[in-house]
Every structure is written in structure tokens, then in C-alpha cells.
């Protein structure tokens, strides 16, 4: 059971969190401008790194905030947690 640092609540057990997969996948601003292949790349393809990985976690049983974690996917060692950027320029869905 991992010990995960929530940037707001501190170190908590893994069971309090839900996993959000790879971090840094940005929704395209203009989906219609993309080819099917480009859209599929956003939708499905992942680097799925073996090694240092930036990923998203949510403190679901706590403050319910999403945040980033850098974790090694082989040793499972966590380098640290970070807050997600806030208040970016408006993007459409």
C-alpha cells in the first residue's frame, strides 16, 4: 500500500486515492481540426513509461483534489507530488 503525499492533506494511504493515469495529456483545443488518427492518439495512446512517470492521482476519500505525482513504475518509489497548474487560458470542450 503506497504512501502518497497529497499536496493539501499530507501523506495518506493509497486506499484514500484514485488513480488518473498519465499526466500531461492535454485535450486538443480544436478537435475538429484533427484527423481521426490524431484524435485517436489523444484518446488512446499513452507513453506508459517504464521508469519515472508523471501521473495523476485524486484524493478521492479526502479533499477530492487532483494532483500530480512523479513515481517510478518499476520501483514504485515516489519522487514527489505537485499541484496542477490552475487558471489557464480558457479552452473549449
Amino acid at each position: 500500500m503506497f504512501l502518497i503525499q497529497c499536496p493539501w492533506c499530507g501523506e495518506r494511504a493509497e486506499t484514500e486515492f484514485s488513480y488518473g493515469g498519465e499526466a500531461g495529456i492535454v485535450r486538443p483545443l480544436e478537435p475538429d481540426a484533427l484527423s481521426d488518427a490524431e484524435w485517436a492518439d489523444y484518446l488512446f495512446n499513452r507513453t506508459n513509461l517504464r521508469g519515472a512517470y508523471k501521473e495523476l492521482w485524486n484524493h478521492a476519500q479526502g479533499c477530492r483534489r487532483w494532483f500530480g505525482v512523479e513515481r517510478d513504475t518499476v520501483t514504485y518509489k515516489i519522487e514527489g507530488s505537485y499541484e496542477l497548474p490552475s487558471g489557464r487560458a480558457g479552452k473549449g470542450a
Partner: peptide, 15 residues
């Protein structure tokens, strides 16, 4: 609820 929160926090924090 989790889906809505996720979009709000990770993709559209400006909202």
C-alpha cells in the same frame, strides 16, 4: 461526480 471534478480540476481550472 468524479468525471466532472476531473475535467474541472485538470483541464479547465479556469472555470
Amino acid at each position: 461526480l468524479a468525471w466532472l471534478e476531473r475535467w474541472l480540476q485538470t483541464e479547465w481550472p479556469e472555470l
